[in-house]
Protein backbone atom coordinates (compact mmCIF):
# COMPACT_ATOMS: atom_id res chain seq x y z
CA UNK A 1 0.00 0.00 0.00
CA UNK A 2 1.36 3.39 -0.97
CA UNK A 3 1.31 6.20 1.55
CA UNK A 4 0.62 9.77 0.49
CA UNK A 5 0.19 13.09 2.30
CA UNK A 6 -2.45 15.67 1.53
CA UNK A 7 -3.08 19.06 3.10
CA UNK A 8 -6.36 20.88 3.64
CA UNK A 9 -5.91 24.65 3.49
CA UNK A 10 -8.19 27.68 3.46
CA UNK A 11 -9.06 30.73 5.51
CA UNK A 12 -10.31 30.42 9.08
CA UNK A 13 -13.87 29.13 9.37
CA UNK A 14 -14.00 27.92 5.75
CA UNK A 15 -15.05 24.47 6.97
CA UNK A 16 -11.82 22.49 6.58
CA UNK A 17 -12.12 20.41 9.74
CA UNK A 18 -15.79 19.61 9.19
CA UNK A 19 -14.84 18.24 5.76
CA UNK A 20 -12.13 16.05 7.28
CA UNK A 21 -14.58 14.87 9.94
CA UNK A 22 -17.16 14.11 7.26
CA UNK A 23 -14.61 11.99 5.40
CA UNK A 24 -13.74 10.16 8.60
CA UNK A 25 -17.24 9.62 9.96
CA UNK A 26 -19.66 10.16 7.07
CA UNK A 27 -21.60 12.75 9.00
CA UNK A 28 -21.57 16.41 10.01
CA UNK A 29 -19.64 17.07 13.21
CA UNK A 30 -19.45 20.44 15.00
CA UNK A 31 -15.85 21.58 15.36
CA UNK A 32 -13.76 24.30 17.00
CA UNK A 33 -10.95 26.31 15.40
CA UNK A 34 -7.92 24.15 14.61
CA UNK A 35 -4.89 24.83 16.78
CA UNK A 36 -2.13 24.95 14.19
CA UNK A 37 -2.17 21.55 12.50
CA UNK A 38 -4.42 18.54 13.01
CA UNK A 39 -3.18 15.22 11.76
CA UNK A 40 -6.42 13.44 11.03
CA UNK A 41 -6.99 9.71 10.78
CA UNK A 42 -5.46 8.07 7.73
CA UNK A 43 -7.93 7.14 5.04
CA UNK A 44 -7.59 4.05 2.87
CA UNK A 45 -8.58 4.39 -0.75
CA UNK A 46 -7.95 1.42 -2.99
CA UNK A 47 -4.16 0.96 -2.82
CA UNK A 48 -3.49 4.30 -1.14
CA UNK A 49 -3.09 5.16 2.51
CA UNK A 50 -3.80 8.87 2.75
CA UNK A 51 -2.53 11.02 5.61
CA UNK A 52 -4.51 14.21 6.01
CA UNK A 53 -2.95 17.37 7.44
CA UNK A 54 -5.68 19.82 8.37
CA UNK A 55 -4.09 23.27 8.65
CA UNK A 56 -5.45 26.02 10.91
CA UNK A 57 -6.63 28.93 8.78
CA UNK A 58 -5.87 31.90 11.06
CA UNK A 59 -3.20 34.25 9.74
CA UNK A 60 -0.81 33.40 12.55
CA UNK A 61 -0.90 29.71 11.59
CA UNK A 62 -0.37 30.30 7.89
CA UNK A 63 3.38 30.57 8.51
CA UNK A 64 3.27 26.82 9.17
CA UNK A 65 1.74 26.00 5.80
CA UNK A 66 4.75 26.13 3.44
CA UNK A 67 6.67 23.43 5.26
CA UNK A 68 3.70 21.05 5.18
CA UNK A 69 2.57 21.93 1.67
CA UNK A 70 6.07 21.44 0.22
CA UNK A 71 5.95 17.77 1.23
CA UNK A 72 2.37 17.26 0.14
CA UNK A 73 1.23 15.13 -2.80
CA UNK A 74 -2.07 16.95 -3.07
CA UNK A 75 -3.61 20.15 -1.79
CA UNK A 76 -7.26 20.76 -1.00
CA UNK A 77 -8.22 24.41 -0.75
CA UNK A 78 -11.55 25.17 0.92
CA UNK A 79 -13.46 28.41 0.31
CA UNK A 80 -16.65 29.43 2.10
CA UNK A 81 -18.80 30.29 -0.90
CA UNK A 82 -20.89 32.70 1.17
CA UNK A 83 -17.96 34.67 2.53
CA UNK A 84 -17.82 37.44 -0.09
CA UNK A 85 -15.98 39.73 2.35
CA UNK A 86 -12.91 37.50 2.40
CA UNK A 87 -13.03 36.35 -1.21
CA UNK A 88 -9.96 38.36 -2.25
CA UNK A 89 -8.01 37.24 0.77
CA UNK A 90 -8.89 33.61 -0.03
CA UNK A 91 -7.80 34.08 -3.64
CA UNK A 92 -4.48 35.69 -2.63
CA UNK A 93 -3.83 32.98 -0.09
CA UNK A 94 -4.58 30.27 -2.66
CA UNK A 95 -2.28 31.79 -5.28
CA UNK A 96 0.47 32.18 -2.72
CA UNK A 97 0.26 28.43 -2.09
CA UNK A 98 0.23 27.69 -5.81
CA UNK A 99 3.11 30.00 -6.62
CA UNK A 100 5.42 29.40 -3.70
CA UNK A 101 4.55 26.32 -1.70
CA UNK A 102 3.89 23.38 -4.02
CA UNK A 103 5.45 21.63 -7.01
CA UNK A 104 3.92 21.53 -10.47
CA UNK A 105 2.88 17.86 -10.33
CA UNK A 106 0.77 18.38 -7.21
CA UNK A 107 -2.97 17.75 -7.63
CA UNK A 108 -5.25 20.57 -6.48
CA UNK A 109 -8.85 20.21 -5.34
CA UNK A 110 -10.92 23.32 -4.69
CA UNK A 111 -14.03 23.01 -2.58
CA UNK A 112 -16.58 25.78 -2.81
CA UNK A 113 -17.97 24.96 0.56
CA UNK A 114 -21.17 25.48 2.59
CA UNK A 115 -23.37 25.02 -0.46
CA UNK A 116 -26.32 24.27 1.82
CA UNK A 117 -26.54 28.01 2.59
CA UNK A 118 -28.39 30.30 0.15
CA UNK A 119 -26.84 33.15 -1.85
CA UNK A 120 -23.35 31.73 -2.18
CA UNK A 121 -21.14 32.43 -5.16
CA UNK A 122 -21.92 30.44 -8.33
CA UNK A 123 -19.32 27.85 -9.29
CA UNK A 124 -18.72 29.25 -12.79
CA UNK A 125 -18.20 32.75 -11.47
CA UNK A 126 -15.92 31.42 -8.76
CA UNK A 127 -13.75 29.52 -11.25
CA UNK A 128 -13.34 32.64 -13.36
CA UNK A 129 -12.79 35.15 -10.56
CA UNK A 130 -10.51 32.88 -8.57
CA UNK A 131 -8.21 32.64 -11.58
CA UNK A 132 -8.51 28.88 -11.98
CA UNK A 133 -8.72 28.83 -15.78
CA UNK A 134 -5.05 29.73 -16.14
CA UNK A 135 -3.89 27.31 -13.47
CA UNK A 136 -1.00 25.09 -14.63
CA UNK A 137 -2.04 22.24 -12.36
CA UNK A 138 -4.34 19.29 -12.49
CA UNK A 139 -7.31 20.70 -10.63
CA UNK A 140 -11.05 20.38 -10.08
CA UNK A 141 -13.66 22.44 -8.27
CA UNK A 142 -16.69 21.02 -6.46
CA UNK A 143 -19.48 22.71 -4.56
CA UNK A 144 -19.71 20.92 -1.24
CA UNK A 145 -21.55 20.84 2.04
CA UNK A 146 -20.55 18.92 5.14
CA UNK A 147 -24.10 19.40 6.46
CA UNK A 148 -25.80 17.62 3.56
CA UNK A 149 -22.75 15.67 2.39
CA UNK A 150 -23.12 17.15 -1.10
CA UNK A 151 -20.14 16.25 -3.31
CA UNK A 152 -17.74 15.51 -0.47
CA UNK A 153 -17.10 11.93 -1.47
CA UNK A 154 -17.40 12.75 -5.19
CA UNK A 155 -14.79 15.50 -4.94
CA UNK A 156 -12.37 13.38 -2.97
CA UNK A 157 -12.91 10.40 -5.24
CA UNK A 158 -11.72 12.53 -8.17
CA UNK A 159 -8.82 13.79 -6.05
CA UNK A 160 -7.72 10.36 -4.87
CA UNK A 161 -8.06 8.94 -8.40
CA UNK A 162 -5.63 11.58 -9.67
CA UNK A 163 -3.24 10.94 -6.79
CA UNK A 164 -3.37 7.22 -7.47
CA UNK A 165 -2.21 7.89 -11.03
CA UNK A 166 0.46 10.37 -9.96
CA UNK A 167 2.30 8.37 -7.30
Amino acid sequence: MKEIDITICGLANAGKTTIVKYLETGRFVETQPTMGINRGESIQFEKLEINIFDLGGQEDFQVLWPEVNEKSDGVVFVVDKNDYMNFESARDTFHDIINTQIYKDVVVLLLLHKSDLPNGMERNRFIKEFGLLELPYKWACYETSAKTGENIFEGFRWFFDQLKDEV
Binding site: A12, Q32, P33, M35, Q58, E59, D60, F61
Partner: peptide
Protein backbone atom coordinates in the same frame (compact mmCIF):
# COMPACT_ATOMS: atom_id res chain seq x y z
CA UNK B 1 -2.27 31.34 44.95
CA UNK B 2 -1.04 32.11 41.45
CA UNK B 3 0.98 35.07 40.26
CA UNK B 4 -1.69 35.69 37.68
CA UNK B 5 -4.67 34.11 35.95
CA UNK B 6 -4.97 34.47 32.18
CA UNK B 7 -7.69 33.83 29.63
CA UNK B 8 -6.72 33.12 26.02
CA UNK B 9 -9.01 32.50 23.06
CA UNK B 10 -8.84 32.12 19.31
CA UNK B 11 -9.31 35.45 17.54
CA UNK B 12 -9.58 36.31 13.86
CA UNK B 13 -5.84 36.15 13.27
CA UNK B 14 -4.78 33.61 15.88
CA UNK B 15 -4.63 33.18 19.61
Amino acid sequence: KPVSLCLVQMGDKGL
